[in-house]
Amino acid sequence: MENKEPAGTSGIVAKKIGPHLLTDKAHLVEGSKTKNPDDLIELAQQIQRCDDSIKAVASSKLRTILEQMRSLQKQAQQCLEEAKRDAELHHAACNFKKIPGKLYYLYKRKSGQTYFSMLSPEEWGVGCPHEFLGCYKLEFDLTWTLFEDLPKREEDNAMIEKLIKQQFNAALTYEPAT
């Protein structure tokens, strides 16, 4: 079915509420009589305060969500970039079988081909034949960690291990109440 509505006009139209229309929003229960004309204004002001407060609360909650969204977006991006980098590293030329847990050194030949070597630039010394791009550790999940990021990764690993241990201990050291 075709949508006959002209573009740009959704069903919902935002209503602008100016201060002079304040009392338009306040209504007494049908059938009740106005005792005091100020009652309606006070009611209107009260509603306004509630509106402001709700808006503030919503805004505050939304801000937190927005921050989380930004952070998740950043993590997602980082995750994609790491996956791309890991894939690229796995596709670098290599004549030997790579062993998880070991450090490998990435070089670039004059032809543009990148390849992994077991030899560090220090081991090559002055005879290093190709441009050194970086040192990576092949992790047991077959992802790569840049040598410079190793201390942080190891710190994280230690933390995770600690958490797992605590969890296990909590589960395993149940002592019945005496």
Binding site: C94, N95, F96, K97, Y115, S117, M118, L119, E123, W124, G127, P129, H130
Partner: peptide, 12 residues
């Protein structure tokens, strides 16, 4: 020595 040296690594 390892299986799969490059020519340069071989001489090294």
């Amino acid at each position: 020595a390892w299986k799969g040296e490059t020519d340069e690594e071989y001489m090294w």
